[in-house]
């Protein structure tokens, strides 16, 4: 077997295995730890797809940003960190139905998509410049709309969390 293939199957197994741990582990921080492994392995899979920029973005956004925020959220809201996660029986049934439905939808999408196989040769130029050209050219309007939506969300979050400063407090 080729070494790239060996590595690919290694990361594939790691992704699935750690994802299973994310949902089965009882401790919330342990789940976050396994989620970190999963996100890293997904980044590695992007590398196998020759999407170097996307891989680095995956790490910087999901591991360096969102996972840190998730951990923060856990630490700030629950009060105690050793929160044990347990499912009630009713939740078991409803969550099972939702999961199976999601799985079916994903399976259908995967089967029906017309996958295009990329050329095997590595393009030394990388994908960065073509992504940049696409965002700044063809998809400029959607890009700007998304950034404005994010800005609105940001301002809204600040507005909600901010304590109103009363005059007697300020004095």
């Amino acid at each position: 077997m080729d070494w790239t293939q060996t590595l690919f199957w290694f990361f594939f197994a790691m992704t699935i295995g750690s994802a299973v741990f994310v949902v089965t582990v009882r401790n919330l921080v342990h789940a976050a730890f396994w989620l970190m492994i999963t996100l890293f392995c997904v980044a590695a899979l992007y590398v196998f797809l020759k999407a170097d920029f996307l891989a680095a973005t995956q790490v910087v956004v999901y591991v360096g940003g969102i996972l840190v925020l998730v951990l923060f959220g856990v630490m700030m809201t629950s009060g105690k960190l050793d929160l044990n996660l347990k499912l009630e029986r009713g939740q078991m049934i409803s969550s099972g139905i939702i999961s199976i439905a999601l799985l079916a939808i994903l399976f259908l999408i995967v089967r029906r998509t017309n996958w295009q196989t990329a050329e095997t040769q590595f393009d030394s130029e990388g994908t960065t410049s073509s992504i940049g050209e696409a965002i700044m050219g063809e998809f400029l309007l959607p890009f700007e709309v998304v950034s404005i939506v994010l800005l609105i969300a940001l301002i809204g979050a600040v507005l909600i969390t901010r304590k109103e400063v009363k005059k007697e407090d300020a004095a």
Partner: peptide, 25 residues
């Protein structure tokens, strides 16, 4: 690397997770 400096930013952002894990554990 083609994405050299971006790779550096992404890898060094993971240190924060290590710090949180160390502090919590």
């Amino acid at each position: 690397l083609n994405i050299g400096i971006f790779y550096i930013i992404s890898i060094s952002s993971v240190v924060a997770i290590g710090v949180i894990i160390a502090g919590w554990s």
